[in-house]
Amino acid sequence: MNLEKFRSLSWADFFLYSLIDPRALYRRVKQKDPDAFWISFIVPLFESLSGILLLSLLGRESAFFYYKISYGWILVFLFTFIKILIYTSLVDVAAQFSGLKGNIRELITLMNFSMLPALFVLPAAYPFIVGDFVPLFFYVLFSLACFIWHILIIVQSISEMHTIEFGRAFLIYLMPAVVTGIILLLTGIMLVINTAGYISTFM
């Protein structure tokens, strides 16, 4: 993206549509003017920062904060990036299982932009933290609200991407979470059984 494009503020459309019209977001991403893929990573980058700041504001401040805000930011961003990559891949697989065409690059872009509401948790919860008015409650409340908003954005984007109805898009988005949850539950049960069996051999 050259300076001329930057000054035209056309890149701001992605952020704007993320908030007001997720379907339009997909159409705008598809135009590739400018390419939204790399721009979209700004969102998880600042989402990581926002998360660190919120937890620091809610917890006890110590000099360790300077490590969190420097090295910690990089680590949290990497973790978020991997998380997005894995979950988006699973969503893409789920879409392909449903007989739809895979489109991982655009899905990653949409997933990144769908995290934009998470950036609003900090300014929303900050007055309650400063005023010390049940800050944890409002943090959880705003986080939940933003998470629902995030789901609405990504599901509408998927719906627009594959030209499918909202309900089906929601199932595609939800399927990896359900499958992962079941796998984790079974793994946990097996781990408990194995551990108990292993310990009982010593008794």
């Binding site: 600042f46 620091s56 504001l57 805000i69 900090l122 900050y126």
Partner: peptide
């Protein structure tokens, strides 16, 4: 949003 983040960093 960036400004709020900066304010939070300075505050902490």
């Amino acid at each position: 949003l960036i400004l709020v983040a900066v304010i939070a960093i300075v505050d902490i």
